[in-house]
Amino acid sequence: MKEFERKRLLERIDREGATIGMDIPDVVEVQGEEVELRDFVFEIKRRDTVPDGEKERVERAKKNLRRERLQRRQQIENGEVSFEEGERLVESIIGIERALDALQQLRPANLEQEATLQEAQDQKRWMSFLKQALGREQSGRSSRGGR
């Protein structure tokens, strides 16, 4: 592969918005094992939140996808492949990136519960603060008015 071809391939990977309009690949070989990536992502995304039992599985998948993406990029950076193979790698890297984006947007189920609890606690603290502030203000008025 020529230097300008290698640079062009890397530019495609690094382009902001490269994943826009890209499909998640049906199947990707990750760490020597075929993964039905599209089905996996849509199965998880359908739930909107990651149940506690699935959290480890999703985190492991994201870690393996990041590792695979890096290895494929390094093959292009090092010029270890032909331009045609580099083009295929770019497409797969962008597809993996698209899957990672989808998985990153998921919220852990317990995080959602924690956020709701935190909001309730914040409201209690705010109400307590207001009561104290208003109580002091009112007592301050009465002591000033009595002078």
Rank of each mutant, 00 (worst) to 15 (best):
Q121M: 13
Q132P: 00
E114A: 12
W126M: 07
S139C: 00
M127V: 15
A120G: 02
L117Q: 15
S142L: 15
L111T: 01
A120K: 13
Q104M: 08
S142C: 03
Q121S: 12
A115E: 09
E137L: 08
E112A: 09
R125I: 03
L117K: 15
F129P: 01
E112Y: 04
S139P: 00
S128R: 13
Q138S: 05
L117Y: 07
Q138V: 12
P108T: 02
P108C: 02
G135H: 00
D122L: 13
E119R: 15
F129K: 10
L117A: 13
N110A: 06
K124E: 10
A133E: 10
W126A: 11
K131M: 11
R125Y: 11
A120R: 13
Q104H: 12
L130K: 13
Q121G: 01
R107W: 04
Q104I: 05
G140N: 11
Q138Y: 05
M127A: 15
Q105M: 12
P108D: 06
S139L: 09
T116I: 14
M127Y: 09
R125G: 06
D122F: 12
P108Y: 04
E112W: 04
Q105Y: 11
S143H: 14
Q132E: 14
S143N: 03
R136P: 00
K131Q: 09
S139E: 12
K124H: 05
